[in-house]
Amino acid sequence: MSEHRRAIVGHHDSSTRGTLASYVTGYIFSIYLTITAWLLVRNHLLQKTPLLILIILLALAQFMVQIFFFLHLGRERKPRWRLIVFFGMVAIVLILVIGSLWIMTTLRYRMTIPQMENYMNQQQGL
């Protein structure tokens, strides 16, 4: 019984498993990206805005590296449910983050005191 069971366990779905090569590759890339971003910021090698864009791009690169080499996304067999749910998550996250920032920055624009004072000065009849 136990031998029989073991044999079947042996060939269950291995498409979402890692290999030594995938973990080592992911680890080396991640360390490289982390230290690059850290050195760029510590030595302030660029102007503020390009530096900010670059470190965010490095973070996204490391995100892709770890999703691919550590979580093995995209290596599963069809139908690729994990990939579909992943894209759903990305869509919700983008709506949530960009939406919040958009609402709050325009709120700040409309609600800051100088703008309100200007508005009240223009509407003196009120």
């Binding site: 982390t34 971003a37 510590r42 302030h44 470190i55 995100f63 770890q66 999703i67 979580l71």
Partner: peptide
């Protein structure tokens, strides 16, 4: 565990590195 490491990449970048830029 891998997921927590992935979240940390963004904390590292958006909170700490972003904060450390003069």
């Amino acid at each position: 565990w891998h997921f927590l490491d992935i979240i940390w990449i963004f904390i590292f970048t958006i909170v700490y590195l972003r904060g450390a830029i003069a």
